[in-house]
Amino acid sequence: MTEPQDLVFECELDAPVEKVWRALTVPEYLQRWLKPKAPVDLAVVSAEENVSLSYRWREAGQGAVVGLEDSVVTFELSATETGGTWFRLTHAPVAVPVAANNNEMMMLAA
């Protein structure tokens, strides 16, 4: 298995931290905001109100990869001087299996 790298996205949102927190924690708001293409199973891993929130994220249904650990998606929020929110999303994906015909090991030995 190869080790995937975390994906990190950061931006400033023109909304107070409390409003962004609601968008991340109220299921109807979260569904509208994130709009996942496939159904996902979410479970809260950790939460510090208006500061950080981590979900275990796994594709639901037939598209789910059986036997692999879940991804963890973490949202970090901090208030800006202008009354907005500095938003940081970190997605720590599962390990990606290497194809049986991958030449990675052969190339390293050469």
Rank of each mutant, 00 (worst) to 15 (best):
A60L: 13
L77Y: 09
P97F: 02
S71C: 06
N50G: 07
H91A: 03
T82I: 00
S78I: 06
A95L: 03
V40Y: 05
T80C: 15
A38L: 13
L53K: 02
A43T: 13
T82Q: 13
V96L: 09
E49N: 12
E49I: 06
Q62L: 13
H91P: 01
Q62G: 12
V45M: 00
G61M: 09
E69I: 00
E69P: 02
S78P: 04
E48V: 14
A92Q: 11
N102G: 02
R56L: 12
F87V: 09
Y55A: 03
T85G: 06
A79T: 14
L42F: 09
E48W: 12
E69G: 09
V94L: 08
T80F: 06
A79D: 14
R88Y: 05
T74N: 06
R56I: 00
W86N: 14
V51W: 07
R58D: 12
R56K: 15
P39T: 14
N101L: 00
V72M: 03
S71Y: 01
G67S: 07
V51Y: 08
L89Q: 15
S46G: 12
A79K: 15
T85D: 07
V40G: 10
S54C: 06
V98A: 05
V98I: 09
W86C: 08
A92D: 03
T80L: 08
A43S: 14
W86Y: 12
Y55C: 07
L42Y: 11
W86G: 14
V65G: 04
V40E: 07
V40T: 15
G63Y: 04
A92N: 04
S46T: 09
A64Y: 03
A47F: 05
F87H: 11
T74F: 03
G84I: 08
T74M: 02
E59D: 06
V98F: 00
N102A: 14
A95D: 13
Y55N: 00
G63F: 08
P93K: 00
A99S: 01
E48Y: 06
E81P: 02
F87D: 09
S46R: 11
V72T: 07
E76W: 06
R58P: 02
A64Q: 15
F75C: 07
P39F: 12
E49Y: 06
A100K: 04
R58C: 10
E49M: 09
V96C: 00
V94W: 01
A99F: 00
D70L: 01
G67M: 06
V65T: 04
N102I: 00
A100W: 02
E69C: 01
P97S: 05
L68R: 05
V51R: 15
E49Q: 15
V94K: 09
V65L: 13
E48D: 15
K37V: 02
N101R: 08
N50P: 10
L42N: 10
P97V: 03
E81K: 08
F75I: 13
L53V: 14
D70R: 04
G63T: 11
V44E: 13
T80I: 12
G63E: 12
G83S: 05
V40H: 13
V40D: 04
S71N: 09
R58L: 08
V94D: 03
A64C: 02
V65E: 07
V72H: 01
A38K: 09
V96W: 07
L42S: 14
L89D: 01
N50W: 10
A64E: 02
A43L: 08
N101P: 04
S52T: 13
V98E: 10
R88F: 08
V94F: 13
N50S: 12
P93E: 01
